[in-house]
């Protein structure tokens, strides 16, 4: 209809056309997100899917170095203001290969929470990688995590180190003996090609009451049997702990939640050498 407008009113025609385009664009772009069928829905736009694969592609391969240096932080759940401050702080660091978030990205396992977190963490200069937490598994969080990030159990190699990340949130599975997936873990630990060190990352540490009690001994035995293991990293407890709770030479570390305005920088090199730095930021607020 617009082309039938009188030629003497081109400005009005242009105004109407741009207004209509804006309206149509706004409705198409905005309403897809705005018209929400359920807070538990698992739909996200294509550009927000597969963040794990996307970040691993960004990470690429280390060239000519045996050292990996990464930020290690825990639960981002419902701490969006704090997440922005965290991103600002990490972006001021130099020589960070990637950021590792140890689960509980969301608090209620809702799609919008995953989007709120991802949109903020996507502003990190280094790529970031995640492991699933118990809060990410409530409701339909499992499907949402799979959409936004990818597999619940996965591995990647960087600078001679194999990172094994897995779901240990046994309570969310009703302690059914399936989580963590021990046969999968043993297979990854047995695959020694291409990496001289191993780091295992999970949300719930095996010392916690939310870890399936029937699988604690199998899990710790698998880790104990790996001579390449540097340490085991977890979140969940919202504070820093480090020790060898099973008195078997295996070091278990946990890290802060975003609320604590602290994070760790871990550097791993050599046979099983590592250094732990703690960064505090914005504590005055």
């Amino acid at each position: 209809m617009l082309h039938e407008f009188p030629a003497c009113l081109p400005w009005l025609r242009d105004l109407l056309r741009s207004g209509l385009q804006l309206l149509a664009g706004g409705l198409l772009l905005g309403s897809c997100q705005l018209i929400e069928y359920s807070p538990n829905q698992a739909y996200v736009p294509v550009r927000e899917r597969g963040q794990t694969a996307r970040n691993l592609q960004l990470l690429g391969a280390a060239t000519g170095t045996d050292t990996v240096r990464f930020v290690f932080v825990g639960d981002t759940q419902r701490f969006y203001d704090e997440t922005e401050a965290f991103v600002t702080s990490v972006n001021q660091q130099r020589g960070i290969d990637f950021v590792l978030v140890a689960g509980d990205l969301s608090d209620f396992g809702l799609t919008r929470e995953f989007q709120w977190v991802n949109r903020r963490l996507a502003a990190l200069r280094p790529p970031y990688l995640t492991v699933i937490g118990n809060h990410d598994l409530v409701g339909n969080g499992r499907a949402i995590y799979q959409h936004v990030y990818g597999p619940l159990n996965y591995t990647f190699d960087y600078a001679g180190t194999r990172f094994i990340l897995l779901d240990t949130n046994g309570r969310e599975d009703g302690f059914g003996g399936r989580v963590p997936d021990l046969p999968w873990l043993r297979r990854q630990l047995a695959d020694t090609a291409g990496a001289r060190r191993t780091v295992v990352v999970s949300h719930v540490p095996p010392t916690d009451e939310d870890f399936d009690p029937a699988l604690v001994s199998g899990y710790t035995a698998a880790l104990r049997a790996d001579p390449r293991l540097v340490f085991h990293l977890s979140g969940h407890v919202h504070r820093f702990t480090a020790g060898q709770p099973f008195h078997d030479g295996v070091s278990y570390l946990t890290t802060y939640s975003l609320k604590k305005r602290r994070y760790h920088i871990l550097t791993v090199w050599g046979a099983r050498q590592f250094r732990l730095e703690t960064v505090a930021y914005g504590l005055d607020k």
Partner: peptide, 15 residues
């Protein structure tokens, strides 16, 4: 909803 509201109330800068 209640869960969005509490997220907003506690993150007035980010949300």
């Amino acid at each position: 909803n209640d869960l969005y509201l509490i997220s907003y109330a506690q993150n007035r800068r980010a949300l």
